[in-house]
Structure formats: C-alpha cells, structure tokens
Amino acid sequence: MRFKTAQIRLVSSHPEVYEPCDDSFALVDALLADRSKLIEHKPKLCMEVGCGSGYVITSLALLLGQESNGVQYFATDTNPYALKVTSETLEAHGVHAELISTDIASGLEKRLAGLVDVMVVNPPYVPTPEYEVGREGIASAWAGGEDGRSVIDRILPIADNLLSDKGWLYLVTLAANRPLQICLQMRQKGYASRIVLQRSTDEESLHIIKFWRESDTQ
C-alpha cells in the first residue's frame, strides 16, 4: 500500500531554492518507514528546520494530518525564497504550516523550548570550505563547512532545547559527517539513536538518524 506524501508535480520551485533530491526522498522514506510509530506518538507540535521547497514538511503534514488531528507544524529557513516556495507547496496540497524566516529556530527558542514532539532536519551537510557556509543563495542549501558539520553542530543543541520529553529528531547525514560521532555526542546529552534508513547513491552515502531521549522508552 502506498501512503500519501507530497507529489513532485505539485512541489513549487525557484532557481534559488533547493529542489527535492535523493536526501529529501530518503528523509521522507524514513518518515514513511516510521509511519505507524509516528501516528501512535501523537505529536502535537512538529517542526522542520531548513524546509527548502517544502517537500518534507508537506509530506509530514499529509502523513500525520492537520488541525482535526490536533497537530501543528512550524518550518523555518534562512532563504526567504524557500519559505515562499514552501508556502506554495503546502497550499497546492491543501495543508498548512507556520513559516518563519529565521536562522535555525532563532526567536522560537525561548517559548517553544520543550514543546516540539517531532523535528525533521535535512541540513546543509556537504563538506566545503568554511567561508561557503550560510552565504546568500542556493549554496547555503548544501554548504556544510568542515566535515559538513558546521550547521549540524549548531542545530543539535537547539534541537535538544526544543524537543519535548517524548520528542523525536530525524536528521539527514552523510557518511562524511561522521554519523557515529554525532550519535555519541547526542548520547552525552542523554539521547538514544537509531539509523532508520541508509541509502547509497552514486554520489553519496546517506544515513537518516532518529534520536530520542533515553529516559523515554519507545
């Protein structure tokens, strides 16, 4: 049986916005693989950092439902065009997410702390020279600095702060990001982890890792 995710032909685009790619599909496939657990999890607030085209947050909203199911979605990006494209993609699928133009979750960290039940992140993870990170335009969609870890390493403590006690984080990483080292680092903050999906393409080896607080038995 196939479940509903965002349809590529309904995903909007812009020359400056990252188009759904192998990494985006891998993340959505990981969410699909976890679908029944996600539904049982009954999240109230879900969030995506770096929503790009909106393909992932739209798929999550289709997977878990909207207001009638008591779920709300937030999505952020630093690229204003990405938010415009995301809002078009959401609308084309008849779903809604609250969009905020911001760096990771800046502005939300105080009040949203401990409230996010599901967080999904497909970060800029490609190893690049440090000066390429966070520049304007499309390069900021992939440029990840040394080991591709610059943005990831800034996101992890913020995710820790935002996640609720039962919160789950799904993170896309590349082998070059040293995913095991990320898991160890999160372990020190009290998180267990599992590789939900591993996929090698011609160019890259992707791992989608799920994190949850160890105190919370799944």
């Binding site: 938010l83 415009k84 905020i100 133009s101 911001t102 760096d103």
Partner: peptide
C-alpha cells in the same frame, strides 16, 4: 509579509 515573519538579524 504574506503571513511569514522575518526574524533574520
């Protein structure tokens, strides 16, 4: 704008 707050600093 268009319902999207811009919190970029």
């Amino acid at each position: 704008n268009k319902g999207i707050p811009n919190m970029l600093l």
